[in-house]
Computed example of a mutant assay.
Amino acid sequence: MFSDADAAALYDLTNPWDAARYPSDAFYDDLVMAADAVLDVGCGTGSMLRHARESGHSGRLAGIDPDRAALERARRRTDVEWHEGTAADISWDREFDLATMTSNAFQCLVDDDELRASLTAIRTALRDGGRFAFETRHPQARAWEDWNPGNAGDVVDASGRALRVWHEVESVAGDVVTFTETTAEPDGAVLRVDRTSLRFLDVPTLNVFLAEAGLAVEEQYGDWFRGPVAGDSRVIVTIARRT
């Protein structure tokens, strides 16, 4: 079988934090290194915060995530705070200059009540004038149409095991897409199937949720080079400030 720990290790292998290769990583690195206290919501294996500490960040760095296996990998670095929980579980009050949700983690907030509770908790954790930076896939790009077995990828994990990974959409209900990720051996023998639902919010709807939570949009981009949101944008990058 392919365990949770195996999945976390494979994620680190296939999604390395590398600002030289990925403009998204460079975008967040600039924000994190300029902030004294940073909270990464949905930190996963902690690669962004681990990299920040390795790069000389001397302030407070904290990550929170509900995935225990991912946190086990994150906790190999002991000079960063790691907490188990969801965005709505955040209980800090005005302790951070910056909160982040990277790697489209924001889209995991599917239900209206969950989204509102999460944004309220994130705002509460920010100091006056603190900022919340995150990205979400733009629904106009219909990224889920590429999630099918025909786009399977072949990878080799850290132990040298060959794997094949693919995604398959189960349903599209309004702005929520539910899909599976299958990890298999090269011959197709299935080792693991994970099911996920993601919400694809457009700009007006997204900004209403932020405003309701007391977060004012300060900057919003359609790419990682700070270009405007346009008709061909595949991403919505948002920086909102606590009001």
Results as ranks from 00 to 15, higher is better:
139 P>I: 03
199 R>C: 06
184 A>F: 00
133 A>N: 06
153 G>D: 11
175 D>K: 08
133 A>C: 12
168 E>W: 00
140 Q>P: 11
164 R>A: 09
185 E>T: 13
173 A>E: 15
186 P>W: 06
188 G>K: 07
181 E>K: 15
206 L>R: 03
165 V>G: 00
151 N>L: 13
145 E>Q: 13
175 D>F: 09
205 T>F: 01
156 V>R: 10
139 P>T: 05
143 A>F: 15
179 F>H: 08
182 T>L: 10
168 E>Q: 10
224 W>K: 07
172 V>Y: 05
224 W>L: 07
182 T>N: 11
136 T>I: 13
220 Q>I: 11
190 V>T: 15
210 L>S: 02
165 V>W: 11
144 W>T: 00
158 A>M: 14
199 R>N: 10
211 A>C: 02
146 D>I: 07
218 E>P: 04
201 L>W: 08
168 E>T: 02
148 N>G: 12
217 V>L: 07
199 R>E: 07
206 L>V: 14
153 G>R: 10
157 D>F: 03
192 R>C: 15
154 D>P: 02
163 L>F: 08
150 G>F: 06
187 D>W: 03
170 E>P: 00
205 T>E: 06
163 L>D: 08
141 A>S: 14
178 T>C: 04
160 G>C: 07
198 L>D: 03
180 T>I: 11
132 F>S: 05
217 V>G: 01
130 G>D: 00
206 L>Y: 08
200 F>Y: 11
210 L>P: 05
214 G>I: 07
184 A>C: 03
189 A>S: 14
156 V>S: 02
161 R>F: 08
164 R>G: 05
131 R>L: 01
168 E>L: 05
203 V>M: 05
164 R>W: 07
205 T>W: 04
217 V>D: 06
188 G>R: 05
219 E>Y: 02
185 E>P: 10
135 E>H: 14
151 N>V: 04
170 E>Y: 00
179 F>E: 04
186 P>T: 11
200 F>H: 07
189 A>D: 13
189 A>V: 07
136 T>Y: 12
189 A>Y: 05
167 H>S: 04
170 E>Q: 10
182 T>Q: 08
219 E>R: 10
206 L>M: 09
138 H>R: 07
164 R>F: 13
187 D>H: 03
159 S>D: 14
216 A>S: 05
177 V>E: 01
185 E>D: 13
189 A>M: 09
178 T>V: 02
135 E>D: 11
147 W>D: 01
203 V>W: 03
179 F>N: 06
181 E>L: 11
148 N>T: 14
152 A>F: 11
206 L>I: 15
181 E>I: 13
196 T>Y: 01
164 R>Q: 14
193 V>P: 02
160 G>E: 08
179 F>S: 03
209 F>V: 08
204 P>Y: 08
223 D>S: 11
160 G>A: 03
197 S>Y: 00
162 A>D: 14
188 G>D: 12
141 A>W: 01
182 T>I: 10
170 E>C: 04
192 R>Q: 13
145 E>Y: 12
184 A>G: 13
155 V>F: 13
152 A>Y: 06
174 G>F: 09
148 N>A: 12
148 N>F: 06
192 R>V: 15
220 Q>C: 09
172 V>A: 01
158 A>T: 15
151 N>K: 12
